[in-house]
Computed example of a mutant assay.
Amino acid sequence: MGKLGDMANKAKEMARSHPDQADKGVERAERMVDERTGDKYDSQTDKAADAVRRSYGDKDKPAH
């Protein structure tokens, strides 16, 4: 696997180890995109945030 794949795997492992911190980052990123786009893509950012949360195992957190 290349460097990018290795970095992605390390990031996922860190998120699994610290799901609360990872969730704060996901929420912050989702909110920033929604603010910058005037909520134009809100449903897409909700789906993306859910997908990210599933990737590190935080399935109980709903999208905002």
Rank of each mutant, 00 (worst) to 15 (best):
M1G: 10
M1K: 02
M1S: 09
M1W: 03
K3W: 13
G5D: 13
G5V: 03
G5Q: 13
G5W: 04
D6K: 10
D6F: 02
M7V: 02
M7R: 10
M7T: 01
M7Y: 02
N9C: 10
K12Y: 12
E13N: 12
E13D: 15
E13T: 06
M14N: 07
M14C: 02
M14Q: 09
A15Y: 11
A15N: 14
A15D: 11
A15S: 15
R16D: 04
P19E: 09
D20T: 08
D20S: 12
D20M: 07
A22I: 09
D23E: 10
K24M: 09
G25N: 12
G25I: 05
E27W: 06
R28H: 06
R28F: 04
R28V: 00
A29Q: 05
E30Y: 01
R31L: 13
R31Q: 15
M32T: 10
M32P: 00
M32F: 08
V33C: 06
D34K: 11
D34S: 08
E35A: 06
E35W: 02
E35R: 11
E35V: 01
R36H: 11
R36E: 12
T37G: 03
G38P: 05
G38C: 07
K40L: 13
K40R: 15
K40W: 04
Y41D: 04
Y41F: 10
S43F: 02
Q44K: 15
Q44R: 14
Q44L: 13
T45Y: 05
T45A: 02
D46N: 04
K47R: 14
K47D: 14
A48W: 06
A48G: 03
A51G: 15
A51I: 07
R54V: 07
R54A: 08
R54M: 12
S55Q: 09
S55M: 13
S55K: 05
S55C: 05
Y56L: 05
Y56K: 07
G57E: 08
D58M: 09
D58L: 11
D58T: 04
K59T: 15
K61T: 15
A63G: 08
A63W: 01
